[in-house]
């Protein structure tokens, strides 16, 4: 079975950043830690679990990202992916979801696959768009927010369970080829072993030049969000803060 997993490299939530004075760009500090989008780690782990159950499974990871997104691909190889492809761009964020979906579906048209797995969403932008867009381009069935997956390689179909909310789930059977996007919590992504990490260092990463130069299709401006409340922020020592919080709660009869 051939599985494609689309992954994205994202900055850590605690990263510090600056918005340029005209609001057009976000500059992350040089110490920013980047990692595989956590939803995509779940996607890759799901592919790895399948490859342990179904022999001759080949997992290919693909990213559109800056030169340094290679780190994410190396990590994916170290986790156990077989091949890695990198569409190199200096600015991933100016591509719209539709443009990225088009590039990735073009990749799928040129490579054999039975199953595509994506994350539910990018942690940094929360669009949750690319998976179903790719499925629409390829005219294959899809299902999103998947929290359980079973594959029947003989019948060439999958049975996936989506989470609609924590109390409501729905199962759906899709013939392959198909696309799913996975919701957080579907599995526990593994840590790469040392031997895998060493092997991954030497593996080739196939670079693909991007011919499309996206134009920013909509005007956008970044701002700091407004405060909805006047928050009383405690910046003292730990003991001073404990006292201040105690007094605050006491004054409101909570303690």
């Amino acid at each position: 079975m051939n599985i494609l997993v689309f992954i994205k490299q994202v900055p850590h939530v605690e990263s510090s950043f600056e918005i340029s004075s005209n609001g057009s760009t976000i500059e992350f500090s040089s110490q920013t830690a980047y990692a595989i989008n956590s939803y995509d780690e779940y996607a890759l782990e799901e592919a790895l679990i399948l490859s342990e159950k179904i022999s001759h499974t080949i997992i290919t990871v693909v990213t559109i990202g800056r030169q340094d997104a290679e780190t994410a691909l190396r990590r994916a190889l170290a986790m156990g992916a077989h091949f890695a492809y990198h569409y190199v761009t200096e600015n991933e964020s100016i591509f719209s979801s539709a443009q990225k979906a088009k590039i990735l579906s073009q990749f799928a048209k040129n490579h054999p696959f039975d199953l595509i797995i994506t994350g539910t969403m990018s942690m940094d932008s929360a669009h949750a768009a690319i998976g179903p867009m790719i499925a629409a381009h390829l005219s294959i069935p899809w299902a999103t927010h998947i929290i359980a997956l079973d594959v029947n390689p003989i019948a060439k179909e999958i049975r996936a369970t989506r989470e609609i909310d924590v109390s409501t789930r729905q199962s759906i059977t899709l013939p392959l080829p198909a696309l799913i996007s996975v919701q957080s919590g579907i599995n526990r992504p593994r840590y790469p072993t040392l031997s895998h990490t060493l092997r991954a260092k030497k593996q080739e990463i196939y670079k693909i030049a991007l011919n499309e130069h996206p134009h920013q299709h909509s005007q956008c401006r970044f701002l700091l969000p407004p405060r909805t409340k006047e928050t009383f922020l405690l910046r003292g020592s730990r003991e001073e803060n404990a006292r201040a919080l105690y007094e605050y709660l006491r004054a409101r009869s909570f303690l």
Partner: peptide, 15 residues
């Protein structure tokens, strides 16, 4: 809409 889990607000024009 939000970026980075709500740290940044993105203002966009809708066409």
């Amino acid at each position: 809409r939000e970026r980075l889990n709500g740290k940044i607000n993105e203002e966009i024009t809708i066409t």
